[in-house]
């Protein structure tokens, strides 16, 4: 098995486990942890892609809510400082990446006509 095959196998297993989590969570688990979901069924299929992608996080949050390990104050801590880091680091990264791209870009003089390096007969 090469690396590409291995990565695709990981993706398939990730999706399969996610599908299982989605099935149980959307049919049994959700009603017990969120009163707003009680009797609301039409929106649930919309959640399937999200569960497939981040099912470990879903399991963790499901556990926190089911066993009430959350502290209410944690819901009200805006991550403004995180944003500040991104706001300064992202511009630097953008400039560096563009500069890197331009530095390896090959420029060919437009006035030079294409030249055949060897005759077709010679290469056969």
């Amino acid at each position: 098995m090469n690396t590409a095959e291995f990565l695709l196998m990981v993706v398939k297993w990730w999706g399969a486990i996610g599908a299982l989590v989605a099935l149980v969570f959307l049919t049994v688990g959700m009603d017990r942890i969120d009163e707003d979901a009680d009797g609301a069924y039409v929106f649930r299929p919309l959640l399937i892609p999200g569960i497939l992608l981040i099912w470990p996080l879903v399991l963790w949050r499901w556990y926190c809510l089911a066993f009430e390990t959350d502290h209410w104050a944690h819901r009200y801590k805006p991550r403004r400082h995180n944003h500040r880091i991104f706001a300064y680091v992202m511009p630097i990264a953008i400039v560096l990446v563009i500069a890197a791209g331009l530095s390896v870009r090959q420029q060919w003089p437009a006035h030079i006509a294409p030249e055949q390096l060897s005759a077709p007969e010679a290469s056969q």
Partner: peptide, 30 residues
């Protein structure tokens, strides 16, 4: 980000966790 854009996710994950996940938009743009 698109798959977790429904309001359910914000309440389920809590706004701070949801916003941390959605900060990956900056990494995605770079």
């Amino acid at each position: 980000l698109a798959a977790t854009s429904h309001d359910f996710w914000m309440k389920f994950l809590t706004p701070p966790v949801w916003k941390r996940i959605h900060a990956s938009i900056y990494l995605a743009y770079v």
